[in-house]
């Protein structure tokens, strides 16, 4: 097993130009910078409309030093398929192709193309940065918006449905390597992206990405909020390697530790202000049951 990357061994070279066009405290800025370090210079990005196109597309501010193909919304994995096919014919298979979409571009409008690519076994890394709603158009609910969260299209009592478990959908496709990560644990994210490069077929990374303007918290709390999601056991860090799931890092350590109550997470964000005590108790019960199952497996 490779030693874990620490702040000293993290590559120094930046693949993002200095500056930022993101909102203050944007979790994606962290995810973007760190994951590009792991992908390395010899990479091509395929990105659909999302906050990322705003963040990376405005040269010279915060734009990427990698070739980036901004495609149409529904087509990230399909366009990546075409890029890969051409690289193969041109004998440039050493280049890493990374498809990189938000939760809408992955779980909603993008899932057909992603599913097709998984079934064909296309050899690219797919990174979903999950800020749990359509943030670029101003906070509308998405398939991964958590139950109870207020958005502009779930304005009364928050979203009624539970969020879509995209890693599980990827696992059902028989994808060789799936990992969840978080903007609040950048070194863990770096290691997982690096590791993904060693597998065949689609590699899927789901990255929890706190969004101050969309979730309703102060910009300086981004890292804290992401950590709370993990420490309360709501969002779990794990890898699924050849169909075997194992918890990693801070989530693994939670198995032997007392978890924080989920209310600690909910109370930090205005999007959850509509949740009643009984709803929270219900969600706490679901989280407890999930962790009981983890402990027994």
């Amino acid at each position: 097993m490779n030693p874990k990357t620490d702040i000293l061994s993290l590559p120094e070279e930046e693949l993002v130009h200095p500056g930022s066009r993101a909102c203050s405290g944007c979790g994606l800025s962290i995810v973007y910078r760190i994951a590009l370090k792991a992908l390395g210079k010899d990479s091509i990005l395929v990105v659909p409309p999302s906050c990322l196109t705003v963040l990376q597309g405005l040269y010279p501010i915060a734009s990427t030093k990698l070739p980036s193909l901004n495609v149409t919304f529904a087509s990230t994995a399909a366009a990546a398929t075409g890029v890969l096919a051409a690289l193969k014919v041109l004998k440039r298979e050493h280049t890493t192709v990374a498809a990189w979409a938000g939760d809408g571009g992955t779980a909603d409008i993008g899932i057909q193309a992603l599913s097709g690519a998984c079934e064909r076994g296309e050899d690219f890394i797919f990174i979903c940065y999950d800020n749990e709603a359509y943030m670029n158009t101003g906070v509308q609910r998405s398939g991964t918006t958590p139950q109870g969260a207020l958005t502009t299209t779930t304005p009364f009592s928050g979203k009624l449905q539970v969020s879509k478990d995209v890693p599980a959908i990827m696992a059902a496709h028989g994808v060789e390597y799936i990992a969840t990560a978080s903007a609040s644990y950048p070194l863990d994210l770096f290691d997982k992206v690096s590791k993904a490069k060693g597998f065949q077929g689609v590699k899927y990374l789901h990255v929890h990405t706190p969004c101050p303007s969309g979730w309703g918290f102060e910009p300086q709390d981004t890292v804290k909020i992401g950590r709370l999601a993990v420490e309360t056991g709501l969002y779990d860090l794990y890898e699924i390697e050849h169909a075997k799931r194992k918890l990693t890092g801070p989530s693994k350590r939670l198995l032997k530790k007392e978890r924080l109550p989920i209310t600690e997470y909910f109370k930090t964000q205005s999007r959850f202000k509509g949740l009643s005590k009984s709803q929270m108790a219900k969600i706490q019960k679901q989280v407890d049951e999930k962790w009981e199952a983890y402990a027994n497996s």
Partner: peptide
């Protein structure tokens, strides 16, 4: 489905 510059129609109708 949200899309600029029509999103406000979606949002207002949601409410």
């Amino acid at each position: 489905y949200p899309i600029t510059p029509a999103t406000e129609i979606v949002e207002r109708l949601a409410e």
